[in-house]
């Protein structure tokens, strides 16, 4: 039994993939340096080599662009158990059987990756609606706490939508922020974020949105179960219209 240790980056993971092909090994475990190591198992440390990562990337892109995106986005799925090993198995199958292996949804490996991907993309899609910005001196700021690393998806969505705006989305769970200005967009690691209290104008728009939200519901059709199905409670602490319902008072930034 072999296992790999790597630095947790995507290029690092692709280097592991390269290494497993080069050594003809079937690792049962791929984990990062900071995770607890298993007892009685020697792990090989894999050094991140970008040029090797590019070779794996090009190989996958040759199969098809969708397949490359499947692997790339699969790496963002924190919800997937044994993420690296499952993705490695998927890549092995893809190189062995060709691109059609990616749609063999009944296969256990493809199924695991595909379900995780669906979960991650769904979370990203929902958050593209549930993100709430607050304005601080012309800069729009928003905080989220997603299960998966959906920030790249959101960054893409909002960069297209608000090309001229300065905005920031902070992922509190992964301690990463995406900062966008009219010239460029970049990802920055931030440990804690403290925001000033909101201005008068911002407070007025929040109040208007809350009022609108309360008035647009039809009381005769009330159905909190249906509401919870579509909009899980875990999204609500960051949403303007639910702020007053939160037990610990207002958790909105500012």
């Amino acid at each position: 039994m072999t296992g790999y240790l790597y630095d947790g980056s995507f290029d690092g993971f692709l280097s592991c993939v390269f290494e497993s092909f080069a050594r003809k090994e079937q690792p049962v475990l791929i984990q990062t340096f900071d995770q607890d190591q298993p007892f009685l198992m020697a792990l090989t440390t894999i050094v991140t080599r970008p040029e090797r990562a590019r070779r794996v990337e090009n190989g996958l892109k040759r199969l098809s662009n969708d397949i490359w995106e499947m692997v790339r986005d699969g790496f963002l799925c924190d919800c997937m158990n044994n993420r690296e090993v499952n993705l490695l198995r998927l890549i092995q199958q893809l190189f062995k059987y060709g691109p059609s292996a990616a749609v063999n949804y009944a296969d256990p490996v493809v199924n695991t990756v595909w379900k995780a991907l669906r979960h991650m993309r769904e979370e990203g899609h929902l958050l593209s609606g549930f993100v709430r910005f607050s304005e601080y001196n012309g800069v729009l700021v928003s905080v989220i706490s997603p299960k998966n690393q959906v920030l790249p998806l959101l960054a893409q969505h909002f960069s297209v939508r608000f090309p001229g705006e300065q905005f920031m989305i902070y992922d509190q769970n992964h301690k990463v922020a995406f900062i966008h200005t009219a010239q460029k967009g970049e990802f920055v690691e931030i440990d804690t974020l403290t925001l000033p209290s909101v201005g008068k104008e911002e407070a007025a728009f929040r109040a208007m949105w809350r009022e609108y939200f309360d008035h647009i519901a039809i009381p005769q059709r009330e159905n909190p179960f249906c509401q919870r199905t579509h909009l899980a409670l875990r999204y609500r602490p960051w949403m303007t219209e639910f702020a007053s319902e939160q037990p610990d008072g207002q958790r909105l930034p500012g």
């Binding site: 549930f130 009330e222 509401q227 579509h230 909009l231």
Partner: peptide
Amino acid sequence: CHTFTADG
């Protein structure tokens, strides 16, 4: 969808 009201 941006939010869901009390009637779902």
